[in-house]
Design a binder for these strands. Structure first.
Length: 224
DNA sequence: GAATGATCATGC
DNA sequence: GCATGATCATTC
């Protein structure tokens, strides 16, 4: 998919664009973008996110930066049920597993990505066909002090385990708001990490994700 | 039913 | 393989 518009020049312009597609169905959005609508997402898991990106004027790419670097805004689509509750966790970024000296919360990719997020909730219930799913109203969010503290605490705990060679002990149950889970094409994918004795080991790549409870709180606070 | 771990598509 | 976009599907 190619961007349909130049990047927005201001947050207001970005919000206007986002609000202008709220309420529209995936069928209407696919038409606007000139792309085919998948009948399901089994083989097109990132389709919705990329569709919203091109409609709002984000440059496609896999750069480890925000979607709108000039505005300092990250774009996230999030599937919700009929009650506005998230149906999935939210991927944040890759978890660095090696050469981690010098990485602190203040300069981490997680903090950078989550410093300002434009959430685009979309209907995601599996009993709604992709063609009928609609986009909800956007939410521009910046973490509160409390939220930032929780994120920092989780990140520190997890990143400490990585530094101490305990990556193999990390599972998705660790962390109140942030968790680490595998992030790879399949189980054969490997990357370097720190082992229990400080040696270099091979392990499955991991990513940081936000729990549904945390994103639910974000969405609720803007609709109450 | 929800959560964890696994997986799919794409561009370099 | 890394990093983006995430959802799937097995396990609990």
């Amino acid at each position: 998919m190619q961007p349909l518009l130049p990047p927005p020049k201001s947050i207001d312009e970005l919000l206007e664009r986002a609000e202008s597609i709220a309420g529209l169905s995936f069928t209407e959005l696919a038409d606007m973008a000139g792309v085919e609508l998948p009948s399901n997402f089994k083989h097109h898991k990132g389709w919705t996110g990329q569709l919203i990106e091109v409609l709002l004027g984000s440059y496609a790419g896999s750069k480890p930066q925000q979607d709108f670097p000039d505005l300092g805004v990250e774009l996230k689509t999030i599937p919700i049920d009929a009650y506005g509750k998230p149906l999935e966790t939210t991927y944040v970024c890759y978890a660095p597993l090696i050469n981690v000296a010098g990485i602190e919360w203040s300069n981490s990719n997680v903090k950078n990505k989550l410093s300002c997020v434009l959430w685009m909730p979309v209907e995601g219930s599996r009993d709604i066909l992709p063609q009928d799913r609609r986009v909800a109203m956007p939410v521009l969010w910046q973490p509160s002090e409390t939220q930032n503290a929780v994120l920092e605490q989780d990140w520190t705990e997890l990143q400490d385990m990585i530094c101490l060679g305990q990556v193999e002990k990390i599972n998705a149950s660790i962390g109140q708001a942030l968790q680490i889970r595998p992030k790879a094409a399949d189980g054969s994918s490997l990357t370097e990490a720190i082992g229990a004795n400080g040696e270099v080991i091979q392990t499955r790549p991991r990513g940081y994700y936000l729990r549904k409870e945390f994103t639910h709180e974000i969405l609720k606070s803007y609709f109450s």
